Amino acid sequence: MKVDLLRLQLPPWTDPDDPTLAVRCGWRGSGGAWRDGGTLALGEVAGRFRSRRCEACLHPGDLPMASFTLPPLSGRRLRAAVLGAVEPCALQPLESLVVGFGPREADGTVGAAWLGARAMDGWTRLLRRSGIAVRGLHPPAAFLPLAAEGWVGCRVDGWCIVRTGRSQGFTHWMTEGADHAAGLAAPEAPAFIRWLDVEEADAAARWSGEDWRWSLPSAEAAGVSGGTALAGPAFGWGAIAAAVWLGGLNVYAGQLATQGQALKRQMAARVKAVFPDLPVVVNPVQQARQQKDALAAGGPQAAGSGYAGLAQGAARLLAEVPAGQVQSLRYAPEELRIRWRDGGVPSSEAWGALQARAREQGLAVESGAGVLSVRMAASSSAADAAALDPQRKDPP
């Protein structure tokens, strides 16, 4: 039989693996009229009906439903808010659930439902093995008609199924013999609820619902609907979030490095402005501290004949050294230590030329472990001392 739309109501989940499992069905013909097909074995459904589209709804006892009042969010933020609202209501961790939810209504409420991932995968496999392809599993209220006013409900296997709006509804367990109205007494319940008798005249009407806009996605159709959300692939989302976080961290680190270089250049300019005798500023903080200590120890003249003199001599000494070979500069009493960068140590030929220039400038140089030590030559030191103390007499 060719039908336009076939709908199935699944029985309670019992980890089934039997195509003879009984399901209730209804269909819509090409003329738009709905028919109730009663109860059929699942294996018979695919052989009896050739449908353009097939939908299935879960049993009300397997699918908790709720409506949550949420702020005006959309996309990932709305999904995160729904999962946060579902978590305290669920009896399982979010990682083991499939969660579906609808759009946010004008009153701020969002309808949601959740099911164990094991049950979802089991139903998907069984339906596929029976030759039935569904895009998702719907809440049972999705197949009920939408009333222009009030609510629409029916009773199935001791459960009350109620559709309260375009994309919202709920299920409620009713004890045997209990009155529908008494069981649904609530402040938000409307004055009028249309109850369908699914066993008699209203059997076809129970399948005729339209405009329901969300479902719980099956394994093959995860993410088909814009209003669905999966909690199962939490690890995948965590990996994506970690990648985004690492990318942002790298960008932030690059910004800090650029800011650090700019700050170092500003500090070097300020140190150069305060101590104009410095020929080159490699480590602004260290050189400023050393210059200050030299001034405090011996005054301007001592600074000029100590650190400043050595720095000026070292600058002239290294004038012919390619730029970028010096890593740091450190001043110790009567000695200036220059550390080469990796690979910047002069060759033996360049070292000989460096020693020759040092002697011409009255400097003594030593090299070891990647460090160049610059001192005033003995004769030069004596001349400086005599210049500082005119009354000093050298011993005979």
Rank of each mutant, 00 (worst) to 15 (best):
R7S: 01
R7K: 08
P12Q: 15
T14H: 14
D15A: 14
D15E: 15
P16A: 05
D17E: 14
D17W: 10
D17R: 07
D18V: 13
P19G: 05
T20F: 04
T20H: 06
L21R: 11
A22S: 10
A22V: 13
R24K: 08
C25P: 05
C25N: 06
G26V: 07
W27D: 03
R28S: 05
G29Q: 13
G31I: 07
G31F: 08
G31S: 13
A33H: 15
W34K: 10
R35F: 11
G37W: 08
T39N: 06
L40P: 05
A41E: 12
G43K: 10
E44R: 14
R48A: 10
R50I: 07
S51M: 05
R52D: 14
R53I: 03
R53K: 10
C54S: 13
C54T: 15
C54W: 15
E55R: 12
L58R: 11
L58F: 10
L58M: 14
H59D: 03
P60W: 04
G61L: 14
D62C: 08
D62Q: 12
L63S: 04
P64R: 09
P64D: 03
M65L: 15
A66R: 13
T69G: 09
T69N: 09
T69Y: 11
T69K: 11
P72A: 15
L73A: 02
G75V: 04
A80G: 04
A81C: 07
A81H: 02
L83D: 00
A85M: 01
A85N: 02
E87V: 03
P88S: 00
P88F: 01
C89D: 10
C89F: 09
A90K: 03
L91G: 09
L91H: 07
E95R: 11
L97S: 01
G100M: 02
F101V: 04
F101M: 13
G102A: 00
